[in-house]
Design a protein around this nucleic acid. Structure first.
Lengths: 148, 148
DNA sequence: GTAATTGCAAACCGTTTGCAAACCG
DNA sequence: CGGTTTGCAAACGGTTTGCAATTAC
């Protein structure tokens, strides 16, 4: 259990870095959440249990991405939203461009598609990101109401 | 010909806005390029032929997106990159996360996939965005060299 | 002991905004 | 003419960075 911590320890060991309480707390907090979080949201919830600076967060995020624990999901009015991806199947996002609602869904065929496209160009595949963009039922209703 | 200008005129007429030389120049410049541009790049190239302010660009971009002429492609170290999409088939991007190289490719099956997923959740479909992320041959070589 | 990490505050930089002048329809 | 758009410059806000103190190994 807590295998995400092991992944972090491994990554840190292999790169000659230091395993700090801050980094441990960040990873634990991230893996206790199940949402698309911003750095600010992460900062506020971590702050409730321990002191930490935003700078440490901003410096830790790229490291966690490198280690394969989290990834960027999308931009949300200027802020980057992340999710923990380690231990999860890849999934895609259906997003309402009007209210920002996000629905996740799986699509098995994309893995093979990614492999094929990457292979055709000699790329090493890291992953893929599919967003289906649209307008959710509620926002369609609102738009309709506005036109009357 | 110049149908992107017609699209803009239509959009402007329908919304009670004004057709200005600035907007015309912006659209012309965008459709003469065939790359993934940032606002700053657009600003610099427009500036070569006429005076324009960054503010006008930043205010015009959302309008062109609304009108269906351009779309955001991805974030590139903090800046948003756009491309003109009107009159083009939807396409996907294979991107090297190390050097930023982008290769475009078509994938017909995604349209149907988008339709299906949107339909299943009552969404009106606007489009989709697929990025395949990886590491290009050149950057793989560099990484390998670094490890020796 | 020594190099890595932290926290703080200031710097950065892409983007947004208030306002007065210019301009489209 | 009236409401929209422009340019300017200042403000904004998320992210990065320099630096001195602290800490992991």
């Amino acid at each position: 259990m807590n295998s995400e911590i092991e992944v972090l320890r491994d990554y840190i060991r292999r790169h000659g870095l230091r395993f700090t309480p801050e980094r441990e707390a960040i990873v634990k907090e991230i893996f206790s959440r199940h949402d698309h979080f911003t750095v600010e949201e992460l900062y506020l919830s971590l702050r409730r249990s321990r002191p930490i600076s935003r700078a440490s967060l901003y410096r830790t995020i790229p490291l966690l991405i490198e280690a394969g624990l989290i990834s960027e999901v999308f931009q949300d009015s200027g802020q980057t939203r992340y999710e923990h991806t380690y231990g999860h199947e890849q999934h895609c996002h259906l997003r309402c461009q009007s209210c920002g609602e996000v629905i996740e869904f799986h699509e098995d065929t994309l893995e093979a598609l990614g492999q094929r496209v990457a292979g055709e160009h000699g790329y090493r595949l890291n992953g893929h990101r599919l967003e289906v963009l649209g307008c959710c039922p509620a926002c369609q209703d609102k738009a309709r109401a506005r036109e009357d």
